[in-house]
Design a protein around this nucleic acid. Structure first.
Length: 760
DNA sequence: CTGGGTGCAGTTTTT
DNA sequence: CTGCACCCAG
């Protein structure tokens, strides 16, 4: 049997058409690493994901490990798919020179987000505590909490008052319904409490907080701990699990006999046990994920490879802590009782992406913050990035476009882009990107830039510029629903206290203007109303099937599908963007219908029933709950604009993106605007601090306080933005913004900044 | 480059 | 309702 060695593997891959990647010695060391924990500290543009893919291929193709013995996790589904595709492509190419590889099924490598793998493995191994469990998504969890948690009770006990006083920062914020901030004199609304409770419950699981310790702490902690236990019990009662608890369940699973079976295997190719765990984006890991990884690699010699860049940690809002990346050696020591020195640290600090001056700017920038130089802020002994790209030239590669006001700035930016195009420095607008904190097209954010580009004939690509609930098709669809279910708006009026009424009234208006051009929709709505009006009191509303088939109860979903089957919705569904948005609404409606009712086994929410007292109307309670729960959810959390599967940028348009969206991407010309914000501790920062004493694992280094972490996070945020640039990085700011000396300009003031950046 | 008055607009991200 | 960006005066 011909075997392939690493040199042959890498050489062969160099012949793959369209792939120009030469493995450097530092990258090779990661790929080659044998057994034992490996801690890879990588910079932006260092090829870290590529190296991880190659390491996995080496384990399979050179070391001949069974694919099922390897697990690779990443942070998003999209990144997981990317790794899977790349591995499949490379393996296919390798199989051309080593036909024995044709037998290898790379599909058996466990690639995915940790959440999805936990879910899959527990189902595969029939973990008793995870049988027939439905995993709640980001819409379903808040709805479940809203209807099941004590903390979101419609009439909460007075004992909750001190709790909400204590967690006021979780409740505070802008209310999209009333258009006002929360007034602390009032008890927080049901939805505000539900969202805050979701946040708290997730933290208990993700930070692995000690609930018993909370109880003995007494006071608000006791009240909260009781509510937490009640929530977890209802999840179990109704066979539900949320994203945070799927990880907790998995950690418990690993300690069971079936878990041991999964880890050890039975010697067959299908179940070889787990030999290697490779983790990408480790800087965005949370504490329970850290515990899972350490358990997965519990067996000697602890084959756990983690790769990440602590300076690019962006996901604290999701419970992630850079701490995991920065003190990985200490975590291994704690879990496995090994010396931290045996944790091999390798660094990938070569940057193959950007002009050397961009690279230097990124290093200067991140090191300029006093707080980033303190121990525990970054991976120990982290060196500067080392510029290795082939991009050279003595042009302005790091610049500041500074103007006296925002209009002038937007014009100067658009002029610059126009000149780049005219002088053929860039061939297409899509070689540039504009990065903003928010891409919404309002004056404060993208609008001035979009207008300035527009007037010069340059169009922009900004798919998430509008809130989903503002879209015509969403408003018309919801309008037709309420026109059928609550034609008089009586229940709508009853919930007016929450301002939901205004929202629904807006939908009705949209519906009426739409129906003027599409009378068939109006006819259907009328017919549906008449049908309901004909049903006797207190009965399920039935929908007739085909001739001879029994009637079956009408559900909210069915009504919704019927409405979508009429114009203009039918025609709108030809438009992929509208289809995606209507799909998001469909998902929300399904989430609502599938939410179990407290005290019942099956979800019956979707069934429509007539009122017991008022004939011909949908039950008042049902309508009321529809507004409070479903509409309340839509307005309090908004609908997520689902991103396109494979979003390719239209070549003739200039993309406008947020920093989170651009993570992992690179662009020849990067413009960064909206540099004005100051660091302010968010609720995530404050909550982390508040629960620190209940953590089961003591932090390995002196933790920073909430304000300090807020500033570090902001520094990292712009570091991600700045390190996307290949040829040039241009910051956009008004003079007063620069004078304010915000973190985006570095931590050392104007003079320091002006020395390093060309003023345009 | 700073201070104070005015006027406008109210994130973002993901399993 | 606030908070903060912006602008202008000094």
């Amino acid at each position: 049997m011909p075997t392939m060695n690493l040199d042959q593997m890498l050489k062969t891959l160099e012949t793959l058409p369209g792939r120009q990647f030469q493995v450097t010695p530092e990258q090779r060391a990661v790929i080659e690493h044998g057994t034992g924990p490996l801690w890879v500290i990588a910079g932006p543009g260092s090829g870290k994901t590529e190296v991880l893919v190659l390491r996995c291929l080496k384990l399979v193709c050179v070391d001949k490990l069974p694919p099922a013995a390897i697990m690779i996790t990443t942070f998003t589904e999209r990144a997981a798919k990317n790794i899977q595709d790349r591995m499949a492509l490379y393996k296919e190419h390798l199989a051309k020179s080593d036909p024995t590889l044709k037998q290898v099924d790379l599909g058996l490598v466990r690639v995915g987000t940790l959440h999805s793998l936990c879910n899959d493995i527990m189902q595969e191994y029939r973990h008793p505590a995870y049988q027939n469990v439905r995993l709640l998504d980001e819409m379903e969890q808040p709805l479940f909490v809203y209807e099941h948690s004590l903390l979101a009770a419609s009439n909460p006990p007075a004992s909750q008052r001190p709790l909400w006083d204590n967690f006021d920062y979780l409740v505070d914020g802008w209310d999209p319904i009333s258009g006002l901030r929360w007034n602390r004199a009032y008890f927080p609304s049901r939805w505000r409490r539900a969202h805050a409770a979701v946040n708290l419950f997730n933290h208990v699981a993700e930070d692995m907080l000690d609930v018993a310790k909370m109880k003995s702490a007494g006071g608000v902690w006791r009240v909260f701990a009781d509510a937490y236990e009640q929530y977890v019990a209802s999840l179990v009662d109704h066979f539900r699990c949320d994203f945070a608890h799927v990880q907790k369940r998995f950690l418990e699973f690993l300690a069971t006999p079936r878990g041991a079976q999964f880890l050890k295997g039975n010697g067959t190719l299908e179940h070889p046990g787990l030999h290697h765990v490779l983790v990408d984006e480790y800087q965005d890991t949370n504490l329970i994920q850290e515990a899972i990884y350490l358990s997965l690699a519990e067996a000697h010699p602890h084959n756990l490879t983690v790769v990440g860049d602590d300076d690019q940690a962006l996901y604290r809002f999701r419970g992630a802590t850079v701490e995991c990346m920065v003190t990985f050696d200490k975590a291994c020591q704690r879990a496995w009782k090994i010396s931290p020195k045996t944790v091999r640290q390798l660094r990938l600090m070569g940057n193959y992406r950007s002009h050397p001056r961009v690279v230097d700017w990124c290093s200067d920038y991140i090191e300029s913050f006093d707080l980033m130089r303190k121990p525990g802020a970054r991976a120990p002994g982290k060196p500067r990035l080392s510029p290795k790209s082939s991009i050279t030239g003595n042009y302005t590669s790091v610049g500041l476009l500074e103007r006296r006001n925002r209009e002038d700035l937007a014009d100067a930016f658009a002029d610059l882009v126009q000149n780049l195009l005219k002088n053929r420095i860039v061939q297409l607008p899509s070689q540039c990107v504009l990065l903003l904190k928010s891409t919404r097209e309002i004056r404060k954010w993208a609008k001035l830039y979009v207008d300035a580009l527009d007037s010069r004939g340059i169009s922009t690509y900004n798919p998430r510029s509008k809130a989903l609930l503002q879209q015509e098709e969403i408003m018309a669809a919801l309008g037709s629903l309420v026109e059928v279910l609550d034609p008089q708006g009586t229940a709508q009026v009853a919930v007016s206290g929450d301002g939901i009424q205004q929202m629904a009234t807006g939908w009705r208006t949209t519906y009426r203007s739409v129906v003027r051009n599409y009378p068939a929709l109006g006819d259907y709505v009328k017919k549906a109303r008449q049908r309901i009006a004909a049903v006797p009191p207190n009965q399920l509303i039935m929908l007739s099937g085909a001739k001879g088939v029994l009637n079956f109860p009408a559900t909210l979903q069915e009504l919704f599908y019927h409405l979508l089957n009429h114009d203009p919705f039918k025609t709108w569904l030809d438009d992929p963007e509208r289809t995606v948005r209507l799909g998001a609404l469909t998902k929300a409606i399904e989430a609502y219908c599938s939410n179990p009712l407290p005290g019942r086994d099956t979800p019956t929410r979707g069934y429509l029933r007539t009122s017991a007292t008022t004939p011909g109307e949908v039950s008042f309670n049902w309508r009321e709950n529809f507004y409070y729960a479903l509409v309340g959810l839509l307005v309090s959390q908004g609908l997520d604009q689902p991103e396109d599967e494979e979003e390719l940028f239209p070549p003739d348009r200039l993309p406008i993106m947020t920093v989170h969206q651009v993570k992992g991407l690179e662009f020849p010309f990067v413009f960064v605007g909206g540099l004005m914000e100051d660091a302010e501790a968010s609720s995530a920062h404050r909550l982390e601090e508040a629960v620190l004493s209940f953590r089961q694992t003591v932090p390995a280094s002196q933790p920073f306080n909430a304000d300090e972490r807020a500033l570090q996070d902001l520094a990292r945020f712009y570091y991600v933005a700045y390190s996307r640039a290949q040829y040039a990085l241009i910051m956009l700011a008004t003079t007063s913004q620069v004078n304010e000396q915000r973190p985006a300009f570095g931590g050392q003031g104007r003079a320091w900044y002006r020395q390093r950046v060309t003023i345009l």
